[in-house]
Nucleic acid binder design. Sequence first.
DNA 1: TATAAATTTGTCAAAAAATGACAAGTCTTA
DNA 2: TAAGACTTGTCATTTTTTGACAAATTTATA
Lengths: 113, 113
Amino acid sequence: MTSLMKTTFGEYIRHLRTEKDLTLTQLAAKLNLDSANLSKIENGIRDFDEKRLPKLARIFGLNIKDLREEYITDLLGKKIYETNCSKQLLKVAEEKAEYRRIRNKNLQTEKTV
Amino acid sequence: MTSLMKTTFGEYIRHLRTEKDLTLTQLAAKLNLDSANLSKIENGIRDFDEKRLPKLARIFGLNIKDLREEYITDLLGKKIYETNCSKQLLKVAEEKAEYRRIRNKNLQTEKTV
DNA sequence: TATAAATTTGTCAAAAAATGACAAGTCTTA
DNA sequence: TAAGACTTGTCATTTTTTGACAAATTTATA
């Protein structure tokens, strides 16, 4: 994990784009996307589609793993915000994730028996 | 927050249901739901629809706030699990949620100016 | 200021995902 | 072994997401 942005993913894209002096139209074309929709993504009205992450990484020369982390932390951050989830509750959520991990591991071994 | 279950929401429903000796058909009827689909929900194949939480709370005499917490922690737990999000990354996600909270608050005040 | 480019906003059809409904299967148990 | 309980599979319907385009508004610059 490299240093992750404390911004939304849309704002992050805008940051990357303006840094490279690209217009919405230019970047949208590279992403095979409508510029109006890219505008909405940057402004948080629409979500960036996960399937375009590899392309985005290539365009800006970013490590795909890092970018995906940027993406999923935004995704979860948004959910945490939307559900009004406190830190305490988030801890419970993490425990439930752990429960799923263990349960899934057990299912794997059950199959082989 | 009362004690939250370290199980999936589906398993929790099954727990509540069997405890009260209800069949899938009986509970499904109370929830205005197909019993086959309730079965899938309990087995984690489908998701419980949030709009039915109040009904579920009434049926089992549960506090709706607590139940909703049970629900959202399951929701987030599932996402954390699915995205393979580490504790470290989850911390980042929480920071991004905080960023959204602050940003939203600022937007509110901007409007009044 | 005029105008051209850049961005935003609104809308709608198409695609994708979630849900409801039902048939047919398996598993339990009385 | 028959009935009830549960599971699985499928498909039509509904809802949500996405792509596409027109028409704004805003910004930059000649």
